[in-house]
Simulated scan of single mutants.
Amino acid sequence: MRASRGVRTPKAFVKPVLAAVFGASLALAAVPSFAADSGKITIMVGGITKLIYLPAKLTEQLGYFKDEGLNVELLSQPAGVDAENELLAGAVQAVVGFYDHSIDLQSKGKEVEAITIFGQVPGEVELVNAKSRDTIKSMADIKGKTLGVTGLGASTNFLTQYLAAKHGITSAQFSVLPVGADNTFIAAMKQNRIDAGMTTEPTASRLINTGDAAVLVDMRTLKGTVDALGGAYPASSLYVQRAWADTHKEEATKLARAFVKTLKYIRTHSAAEITEKMPKDYYANNKALYLQAMQNSLPMFSPDGRMPKDGPETVLKVLAAFNPNVKGKHIDLSKTYTNAFVDAANVPK
């Protein structure tokens, strides 16, 4: 018997098919990747125990995600820049991190928007090592010094460079060391690996209480922030890829509603009442100190989740002063945030 011959495809048919496949591949490549729509929303927090990101865990503790019918998983990365990378890779649907990432990412062609603002100010504190207090009286004294940040490209790094630039000091005149947050930051300070560094509560209060550090620049309050940066500086926020928000409006509105309820809870309850809602392991074996840090942090939070007026302009000014990604670039601030979901969340169901 003769072996049967394979079916031959006409050449005239091959080119159109290949063109169609190639075109489809290009189209798929242009679509942002998202974690699979399993019904679960995964949120990466840039350091879940930091009080600047308090609304993330507090919302879970208060049961507001469940009240909205949401299945939310909270994960943690010590630096906001790492959380941002998880979002862009499509591994998570949202990030609780600093709003300034939305501006930085737009300069790189990435469309990300903040849909709920948690903090009207950075909540960051530049601390000086106790052993360097006599030589570092202000940011004007940091030439030749080593300054700690949570990570290279993180918001703490942006702000550190800006505060130095205000005193005419370039990034080449001091060293930046990524030391993470919480215990790793404390260790770097106690081991004298950094002369000063930027951190948040409750880490700041822990180091101040033990006498290992003192406040150099305080951006936990609106006044301190205006003095340091020249205006309100919207910081901690919930941000997502715009394409995800456009295709998941219901979920985005429910997330905004849950967080707005939490911000209202923060505004109407005492530091002690809020502390009681938090996991005990957040106290770091010192509930009284955590309560003090909580009290220090409450003024930073937004009352309603909306972007503060002129806030984006202040953030852009800070980034454009030194960040090569942003400097000289046209940034459409209207595409870096939206109040639409918060506004919808404030409408009674």
Rank of each mutant, 00 (worst) to 15 (best):
A271V: 10
F259V: 15
K264E: 15
L263D: 09
R267N: 12
H269P: 09
V240R: 04
L255W: 01
V260K: 12
S297Q: 08
L289M: 07
R242N: 08
I274S: 03
A245H: 02
N285C: 04
P299W: 01
T253V: 08
Y239R: 03
A288I: 02
K264P: 00
Q292W: 04
P279S: 06
A288W: 00
L263I: 13
E251N: 14
D281P: 11
A252E: 07
K287G: 01
M300K: 05
L289I: 10
A252R: 09
A243F: 01
P279D: 06
Y282V: 07
S270G: 02
D246H: 01
A288V: 07
A256S: 11
V240G: 14
N296W: 11
M300D: 09
Y283H: 08
Q295K: 15
A272Y: 00
S297T: 14
K287F: 03
Y265S: 08
Y265E: 06
K264I: 12
A272L: 02
L298D: 00
K287W: 06
A243V: 10
A243R: 03
L291W: 06
K277R: 13
Y239G: 09
A258C: 11
D246G: 05
R257I: 13
K249V: 05
K280M: 12
K264N: 11
R267E: 14
K249S: 11
N296L: 13
N286I: 15
R267C: 03
A258T: 13
V260G: 02
R242D: 12
